[in-house]
């Protein structure tokens, strides 16, 4: 995009304050494109994440926006080591986690959780809600038996569901309720960092606001740190302290949420913001007139 990309990509973000919970430096994730008759040969690469750097302080929310294919979701997965990064460093509380093995990662999994986009696809339809939320408490040997049940019921209550939902199956719930189950699951192990990958984009408008408010409340109460990924800049700006804009695997602009939205510096950010519909007929008419006049 802009000619100043090389500078904007890494410099400003790497100079992170030392209190950072998460520090990502030059993270790269390339996927090979293979071809060949007998032996697969790597013919090219998809540069899904192409050297991004950012840091997130404790208790802060970093919004990650970009269009489909910009590499947001790949970035999240590479940060959590759900995908093995091609190169680069991911530090969680100062500890390097890129390249750690499964076993070494296991204790860290408690600290970092994820909320997924599609609450219809991310809950096992054959498990009861109690199991979905409680299984990891069992796996991590945090609680069992009556104690486990009590904790799960507490979590359900906390995210706005009722403890009686413990024995129900996911299909008995609406989209918004399912997303609440997903949130309860993410919070079960009392993580420090929660990565929310498009947590509201599959939900109805009136439900989106509920989930955004719930995430806000939980952050205040549990002093959570969020990386909030979405394509909807309005939602990202509402919930984030700082915003990073991604385009084609790179971060093109980072800054305080209001500043990025009101005074974008990068050409791509400007283009993105100009395309967001404004729910105000007079303003959007004025903007349209401007757009047609411009070309």
């Amino acid at each position: 995009m802009g000619s100043d990309v090389s500078g904007a990509t890494s410099t400003e973000a790497t100079t992170a304050p030392s209190g950072a919970l998460l520090e990502v430096t030059d993270l790269v994730k390339h996927f090979p494109i293979k071809s060949g008759l007998l032996f697969d040969r790597e013919v090219d690469q998809v540069r899904a994440v192409d050297g991004i750097s950012f840091s997130v302080d404790k208790g802060e929310t970093l919004g990650l926006v970009g269009e489909s294919g910009s590499g947001k979701s790949t970035a999240c997965r590479a940060v959590l080591q759900l995908l093995k990064p091609t190169s680069g460093s991911v530090k969680f509380e100062g500890q390097e986690i890129a390249g750690l093995g499964r076993r070494e990662l296991r204790p860290l999994r408690r600290e970092m959780q994820m909320i997924f986009q599609d609450p219809y696809a991310s809950l096992n339809p054959r498990k009861r809600v109690g199991q979905i939320v409680g299984d990891q408490l069992k796996i991590q040997k945090v609680a069992s038996g009556g104690e486990l049940r009590k904790r799960v019921e507490g979590l359900l209550d906390r995210v706005g569901l009722s403890p009686e939902h413990y024995n129900r199956f996911p299909h008995e719930f609406s989209g918004g309720q399912r997303q609440r189950i997903g949130i309860a699951r993410a919070l079960a192990l009392e993580p420090k960092l929660v990565i929310c990958d498009e947590p509201v984009s599959a939900l109805d408008v009136s439900i989106q606001a509920q989930i955004v408010n719930l995430l806000d409340d939980l952050q205040d109460e549990l002093r959570l740190t969020y990386v909030f990924v979405a394509h909807d800049i309005g939602v990202v700006r509402h919930i984030s302290d700082r915003i990073a804009v991604m385009n084609q695997g790179k971060i093109v602009e980072t800054g305080p949420a209001d500043q990025v939205c009101e005074h974008p510096r990068d050409a791509y950010t400007k283009k993105l913001l100009a395309a967001v519909p404004i729910a105000d007929p007079r303003e959007s008419a004025a903007r349209r007139a401007e757009r047609t006049a411009a070309g």
Binding site: V205, A209, I233, V235, C261, V276
Partner: peptide, 23 residues
């Protein structure tokens, strides 16, 4: 519906006025 929109052209409210419950 209007209240629960996150609007870029307005200062962000502390909390989104939400509609409670579900359709």
């Amino acid at each position: 519906l209007l209240g629960s929109l996150t609007r870029l052209d307005q200062p962000r409210p502390h909390r989104l006025p939400q509609i409670s419950g579900a359709p």
